[in-house]
Design a protein around this nucleic acid. Structure first.
Lengths: 346, 346
DNA sequence: GTTAGCACTCGTTCAAATAGAGTGCTAACA
DNA sequence: TGTTAGCACTCTATTTGAACGAGTGCTAAC
């Protein structure tokens, strides 16, 4: 056995033990629990080395040692089983949730958040699918009232968004049809982002009132598109953090929950992800965000037509069950991908 | 001064002090803080009487006394200023949120929950507007794809709901028009709840495929209506409970947050309200729900066309600032009422 | 390189002591 | 008869100190 190998077997044992117990690990308890074939004194020496190497830290002199962020990083990159599969019953139970009746994206998102936070017992987060903002496949302008309409847009990928608009002028059904046609004509030629600029001239074939209505619709459309650029992000299961001794002080727990409830902070998390990887793991102080310096975040992207359109993930204490959590997040992102691929396959 | 009056002035002082401090109130500190013109010994006697009358309880022998639920009830019914108004700046700030651009109900609900929980610093809850399920004013069946449609319903009151439907058969735009007309014809005569039963026979004027599609739409409509019967209820600011010493034990806080996150529990709260009153206050053990025996709940209804359509409210510790909270809930329910009345006024 | 042993450190636990706030009761007072 | 002052008593929260336990660091021996 190479001496280095033994060192890291010990480190690995410390990490997995600490993930389970949240208690500093000492050399004697390690000797008792595992069978390294060496005495606690030797383990002690090895642990001392590991501390010098920056993999272990001591909360105080006479306590055991706990893994550093660097140790977790090593564990995640090298030690941990990466392709661990959840057992078949679980996988099938999850899949059965995403059935053919779940056709609204909102439902899929709500279910995903629920399952994710329940299965991991950490706080789940998720972004709504980002859709390509440049070109739309279809726009429907639906007459509701004489002064209310509903706008429905269908993206290239087949995603649907709708929004109500209250008009400042009255409208007739036929007029709306004209407006709708004019809109379709317009977006055929130019990207939506340029629509507003081009619309200062009167469109031919539209009455004054119709033009007026079109001008009321454009900013709403623009809004819809811009809103979709800054990814809408949601969370669920914030209170699960209360289960972990790291957050037994109310103030810490509150800071955590407050941070998770802030959309801008969640957006920053997603933004920080490395786009080249399907699964991102951010450990402790690798987090740019002050609020999550004692947390780890695991995110995975989900796809539509092979393109990343959104992110799901969990936030929990740095002492996270990485193996199980990675498997869960990974599996759910795949299941969700399959679901929406099926939904929008033509 | 009648002796009874003095007693209750003392009780009132104890309640308001306790609401502020969350500390048991003793006779000496009462004497120092207020100027009753009597000594602490006399106050002590009065307090002893109030305890016998069931208005005060002692956590233990040598502590001060805290108000009982009965005391809070008396305070809320008799002592407290009921028509306290929030100051003008606040009122106007709130009103300015509900501007003409907030036309989607979802936005109004989200804003209301946010403001309510922020202003009171308690957990806010709210039901989506219940709409009359019997008769609809309009149904739109909108063509999206060859196998996807969107259903939009407009209620008598002018509320709009929409849902996507994925069809198991392909459809053409013209067919949908036929289906739409048939649907409108149908709901003109009979309440929606009876629609499903009557639809076993072929509708005249519809092709087989159209009839098939109609049969796929009906259950979705039914679902929409039934879902709207069991009031959809939302909450916000669950973590605010962590600010109160009553919930400094993590387990209590967790129980509270878990309860507030359960829709069935929130629905039960709303259900328990007295329909004859616009504003309901439930104090401590008046709560039927075990989870909220140490909480108080203040709810108010909001209206559309003069009819109660939904509820907003807050949940906080029994030691709640009733005066301020009642004023806030009341004001917000009115503002929300005004907003949606304006939105749907024709 | 490994092990055993010992002194030392520091947090935790437990019990006892103490301080503090408040009550109950009684006797005196107006 | 209502009010007040005073004192003994009670109970909690805080403090203190001792004992304990888990763990480390270091050294000497194997």
């Amino acid at each position: 056995m190479k001496p280095e190998e033994r060192k890291f077997r010990i480190l690995n044992a410390i990490i997995t033990d600490y993930i389970k117990t949240a208690e500093p690990i000492g050399s004697r308890s390690l000797e008792k629990k595992h069978d390294f074939g060496i005495s606690s004194a030797t383990i002690k020496n090895e642990m001392s080395d590991l501390e010098d190497m920056g993999f272990l830290v001591q909360p105080h002199t006479s306590a055991g040692r706990i893994p550093s962020n660097k140790a977790y990083r090593l564990y995640v990159d090298k030690f941990m089983a990466k392709n661990k599969k959840l057992d078949k019953t679980t996988r099938e139970a999850v899949k059965s949730v995403y059935d053919e009746y779940m056709i609204e994206l909102n439902n899929a998102m709500e279910s995903t958040l629920n399952i994710l936070s329940k299965m991991t017992n950490y706080t789940a987060l998720m972004t709504a699918p980002r859709f390509s903002t440049l070109y739309l496949k279809d726009i429907k302008v639906v007459y509701i009232d004489e002064d209310r309409i509903m706008l429905i847009i269908v993206t290239k990928e087949g995603l649907i968004k709708n929004v109500q608009v209250k008009l400042s002028t009255l409208v007739k059904m036929e007029e709306l049809e004209h407006v709708n046609n004019a809109l379709l004509e317009l977006i055929r030629d130019i990207p939506l982002s340029e629509l507003a600029i081009r619309l200062n001239d009167t469109i031919e074939g539209l009455s004054e009132n119709e033009h007026e209505i079109l001008m009321q619709i454009i900013p709403v459309l623009k809004d819809l598109v811009e809103n979709s650029n800054s990814q809408n992000v949601y969370s669920k299961g914030e209170s699960r953090i209360l289960d972990y001794p790291e957050f037994k002080e109310i103030d810490r727990a509150k800071d955590f929950i407050d941070a998770v409830n802030r959309k801008d902070i969640l957006q920053a998390i997603v933004k920080n992800d490395d786009d080249r990887k399907d699964l991102n793991i951010t450990i402790g102080n690798e987090n740019v965000l002050e609020a999550f310096r004692e947390c780890s975040i695991i995110t995975a992207s989900y796809k539509l037509k092979g393109k990343r359109v959104g992110t799901i993930g969990v936030i929990g204490p740095t002492r996270m069950d990485y193996e199980r959590t990675v498997a869960t997040v990974d599996m759910l992102s795949q299941t969700l991908t399959e679901h929406i691929e099926k939904l929008f396959r033509k």
